[in-house]
Amino acid sequence: MANNLNMKPKSGQLLISEPFLQDENFVRSVVLLCENNENGSFGLVLNKLSILKINDLLEDLEFLDLEVYVGGPVEQNTLHFIYKGEEAIEGSIQLGTDLWWGGNFEELVIKYKAGKIDLNNFRFFIGYSGWSEGQLEDELTEKTWILCDNIDSNAIFESPPDDLWRVILRQMGGDFQVLANYPIDPRLN
């Protein structure tokens, strides 16, 4: 696991919001960093469940009664997905040992209909989190985020969304375990 000192964020890391962050889009958020390059950064909030289902968003997929997460405040008219396991979809980008981002959505649907894909290993998002060039690095310097190198895909897919922030911090160990218990509003402690 890592902290922010002397680290350049890279694809496949998690951004854990500091317990003091009050931005309503990112309070207690765990963001999967999918892309970070000279143009900026792209990530998906892993633990913010929306009220929508896939079949609410896509008419042709009324048979898909799957939860959709809010990937972030940017372009909430876009659909993204991640999955765990072996590479299953053409065009997917590997972010961790067994974690993949995106790919050919039509292929996903075809393979699902043919019984070749377990959708319990997939997570869908509307919108994304984006940072302009250098913005994420500035936020790391300001200690807005904690970087985590080791992604536990089981924790991502099996932890209840409201618990994921604490689960990841506890897995990081050390001082991060203490942060995991920090109350949202310390005045109520």
Rank of each mutant, 00 (worst) to 15 (best):
G173R: 03
E133S: 15
I168Q: 02
G40Q: 02
P186K: 09
W131M: 03
Q94Y: 01
E158M: 04
I89G: 04
H80G: 10
E107N: 01
V31K: 00
N3K: 11
I146P: 02
N47V: 00
L21N: 09
T97M: 09
E38R: 12
D149M: 08
I168T: 05
E35C: 03
K8M: 13
E18Y: 09
G173E: 03
L61I: 11
E67S: 12
S132N: 15
L99Y: 07
L33T: 00
N150T: 14
W131F: 07
V109R: 06
L33I: 00
Y112K: 10
R123S: 12
G173N: 04
D118A: 10
F125L: 08
L79V: 13
Q135A: 11
E86C: 07
N189F: 14
L108M: 10
L119E: 03
E142L: 15
V31R: 00
D162C: 10
F105Y: 02
N154I: 12
I126P: 05
E18C: 10
L46S: 04
F125A: 10
N120C: 05
F26T: 04
V109G: 05
D118N: 15
E139F: 02
L32R: 00
E90W: 07
L108T: 10
E38M: 09
F63W: 05
S129R: 03
S17V: 05
S17R: 07
V74Y: 00
L21T: 10
Q13C: 06
V74K: 00
H80W: 07
K84G: 09
I126M: 11
P186T: 08
E62R: 14
A114C: 08
L49S: 15
L14R: 00
K53Y: 02
S11F: 00
N120P: 07
I93D: 10
S41T: 04
V178Y: 10
L44Q: 09
L64W: 03
G91H: 00
W100D: 07
M1N: 08
Y128P: 04
G130Q: 02
N120W: 05
F63V: 08
G130C: 02
P186R: 09
E133D: 15
P160E: 15
K10V: 05
N77I: 10
I168P: 01
D149C: 06
E24P: 13
L58F: 10
F20C: 11
N55R: 14
F122L: 07
G174C: 08
V45Q: 03
L119T: 12
I146N: 05
R166D: 09
K10E: 05
D185W: 12
E139N: 11
P160S: 15
G85Y: 01
R28W: 00
N47D: 01
E67T: 07
C34V: 06
E87R: 13
G174S: 13
E158N: 13
Y83H: 06
N150Q: 14
V167C: 04
R123D: 06
H80C: 09
D149I: 08
H80E: 10
L44A: 11
V70C: 13
C34H: 07
E38V: 11
L164D: 01
P183I: 07
A2M: 13
L5P: 01
A114L: 12
L136F: 00
L147G: 01
L79C: 10
A2I: 12
F105N: 05
P160M: 12
Q22A: 14
L140A: 03
Q22I: 13
K48T: 06
